[in-house]
Design a protein around this nucleic acid. Structure first.
Lengths: 236, 236
DNA sequence: GGAATGCTTCGATCCGCGTCGAGTCATTGT
DNA sequence: ACAATGACTCGACGCGGATCGAAGCATTCC
């Protein structure tokens, strides 16, 4: 595409309801075929195709052909980050949101972002980890893992040393979609969610990003991190 | 605004070249009058006004009326962050300021605003007055003059009691054009500049709003207010 | 007080782009 | 091979919105 890309060029790509719906579905990082994206956007396949071509050209998406299907995915974390930051503006300015559906509120409470824990629960857990002194917010949107933290993770069956840090480190700060705060991401975030699920504390949904907390899960969260169910009944 | 704010709503606001140009100019956090924003966007004032109203309504900008000017600024850091993340997608650097001319930089350093002192020097003087306890920021964009301050102004040959307060008080906070801060305005601000010039500390330019500081002026500023020349050599 | 400046509102015009129907290309299944 | 499926291209339509001229308000200057 034209190298002289301007700020409004990218925004323009997100500014269309159909394209935004597609992008919103893709923020979890997974790839989907064009037809599914057309369906969620509520447009015909040919319209969707036009949109996807634009997004591809604009560098927001990547495409992968697989048989007669073509799978689209976000071009990278930087795109997801930009989308999250845009969404955060909506949350900020004091306009009364419409009452959310049950599913939306559940999604807002706990969900997975890529494959780590997000939503109010994700933030609460992250805050607790910081307060307990297990992790420390550091430069460049990272967390530093303390020796105390490494020990705690180890007790849970999560061996820090066994993880190989990604390009951007072991523990990252990820901006949350619904709340204006960060939650724990990176390899250790992924592994933490896995351990929580293996312990029977959390449970992933099959067809959505919703995360459920089991009764033993609440007990464990209260025991380990002082995170209790009642604190999530706060207004909005 | 419509309560049902979606992702594309915010993106739509940034997706227009004119609006993007304005936002790009405002990412430094400083406030600018509508006319200047119209100029950088390359549109007429009425078009710019329409855009600014949309951005205001969308929660991206804040507005502050100051005399017959209306100063617009970003609604917060979260907006700047979102803009930078968007810009990052095109591997474009966060908006850099065009290099300023010599005159522009001098103007940015010290000038008169109506007939009081503005620019970085105006802000530094105002800050010093606050730190010394001579004036206090008060409600409704005013300053309160302390007894200690009245004494100090008197020593300079500026009789507070001889001034008749305008409709909006004796000492006002005036939003600065170049910096993201306020400087001292109102009758006492006008009189202070007069006294500084009478003392030979400052000198007005004939055909511009530039204010020059004389060598004795620097000495006096350092002696009275701890304002020294070196502090203005900070980057941009 | 009247003139000038800065900004906004209203109304009208015009272009851009999202949309879909029809047709084409590629892959898969029978 | 032929049909079926998934996706892309082309062309035409129609609406939304960016733009500017003219007029209206508010504030400041003289």
């Amino acid at each position: 595409m034209c190298p002289e890309t301007q700020l409004y060029t990218v925004a323009y790509l997100i500014a269309d309801p159909s394209r935004a719906a597609m992008l919103a579905l893709l923020v979890d990082g997974r790839a989907r075929p064009a037809g599914e994206l057309a369906f969620v956007a509520g447009v015909t396949p040919q319209t969707a195709s036009s949109h996807l071509a634009k997004l591809l050209d604009g560098g927001l998406l990547l495409c992968e052909s697989e048989g007669r299907h073509r799978y689209y995915r976000l071009a990278g974390d930087h795109v997801a980050q930009a989308l999250e930051h845009l969404a955060a503006i909506n949350q900020m300015h004091p306009v009364r949101q419409k009452p959310l559906s049950q599913e939306a509120r559940t999604l807002q409470f706990a969900r997975r972002c890529y494959d780590h824990l997000a939503g109010r629960l994700g933030i609460a857990v992250t805050r607790a980890l910081v307060e307990k002194g297990y992790i420390l917010p550091a430069q460049d949107k990272r967390f530093e893992i303390t020796t105390l933290g490494a020990e705690w993770f180890g007790d849970l069956g999560l061996d820090i040393c066994a993880l190989n840090p990604s390009r951007r480190g072991l523990a990252r700060q990820c901006l949350d979609w619904t709340e204006r705060d960060h939650h724990l991401a990176g390899p250790i975030g992924v592994q933490l969610l896995t351990v929580f699920c293996d312990n029977g504390w959390l449970r992933r949904s099959k067809n959505s990003r919703i995360i459920h907390v089991t009764p033993p899960g609440w007990a464990a969260l209260a025991r380990h991190l002082d995170v209790v169910q009642e604190q999530f009944h706060r207004p909005t």
